[in-house]
């Protein structure tokens, strides 16, 4: 009997290929919900396809994904439901496609939010990343399109980046399936709490605003002790977001906060 020699990769958690089952659209009975957010045209749909084995068409134009696409995968016998959100540049404005993304991250309470960014355009993409990190505690940065970044001779120190952002950073080239096993492993570790995130909070704001946010946030915390994103709610209240005010008034918030 011939025994195949085990390569180093086989024993590594990151290459646990046998534990991965792409479930396509079968999203019934899942253990974790994973949201996929990011700027338009960063390859979210490609990452989505790579994870779920679906072949949703991916186009090279912003706005390709107009609806919330859902898919699933199984990893080490835990089921993950993946929700591909429409691409947005920001969560601060009130346009309708941003609302889908914002509401899901805020109220859908995904276990982990994967933020897909274009490695060559990191600075512009960070605008959205920092906003999402205000909302959620569990996130993974998927540094996608690394092949293009390499071609443009852009070097990114993922370790310092991860430290500054307070979340794990996984470089990928989803088109070529590079980095996807590592991404899955990281998602599962964040979902299970093996990796604990300490997300970056916006620092460069004037003192008076910081104080106001601090104040409101404590008030909200008093009212809803379980609210993980009281700071963001405070931001929205200061902005005068009618949607949030209505939710607070109607008490529907209670359901979301649980």
């Amino acid at each position: 009997m011939e025994v195949k020699p085990k390569s180093a990769c086989d024993s590594c958690a990151h290459f646990n290929a046998a534990g991965l089952k792409k479930l396509g659209v079968n999203t019934k009975a899942f253990d974790h919900v994973i949201a996929l957010a990011g700027n338009p045209n960063t390859g979210k749909s490609t990452v989505f396809n790579a994870l779920t084995g679906l072949r949703q068409h991916t186009g090279n134009w912003p706005g390709k994904t107009v609806t919330r696409a859902e898919g699933a995968f199984e990893y080490n016998s835990e089921k993950y439901k993946l929700v591909d959100l429409p691409g947005t540049y920001s969560l601060l404005s009130t346009s309708e496609d941003e609302e889908v993304a914002r509401n899901f991250i805020l109220f859908g309470r995904p276990t982990v939010t994967v933020i897909v960014v274009d490695a060559s355009r990191l600075e512009r993409n960070l605008n959205l990343v920092l906003q999402i990190l205000e909302i959620t505690d569990r996130a993974v940065l998927c540094l996608n399109l690394m092949d293009e970044a390499k071609r443009n001779h852009i070097e990114i120190n993922t370790r310092t980046l991860a430290r500054d952002l307070g979340i794990p950073v996984v470089p990928t080239s989803a088109r070529y399936n590079e980095g996807i096993p590592e991404l899955i492993q990281t998602i599962s570790e964040v979902a299970k709490g093996t990796i604990v995130c300490k997300p970056h909070r916006i620092k460069n704001i004037p003192k008076n605003i910081e104080k106001a946010v601090e104040h409101l946030s404590t008030e909200i915390k008093k009212e809803y002790p379980n609210m993980p994103n009281s700071r963001w709610i405070a931001f929205r209240l200061l902005e005068g977001d009618q949607h949030i005010i209505e939710l607070l008034k109607s008490g529907e918030f209670e359901e979301y906060a649980l």
């Binding site: 960070l126 605008n127 906003q131 852009i154 310092t160 980046l161 952002l165």
Partner: peptide
């Protein structure tokens, strides 16, 4: 100025983070 201040704050943070970790030719 709240909205503008917030947006500027985010951009300033982003610039700092990128400066520390990204090397562009």
């Amino acid at each position: 100025e709240f909205h503008d201040n917030l947006a500027e704050g985010i951009y300033a943070d982003a610039a700092e983070i990128v400066k520390a970790s990204v090397h562009k030719p």
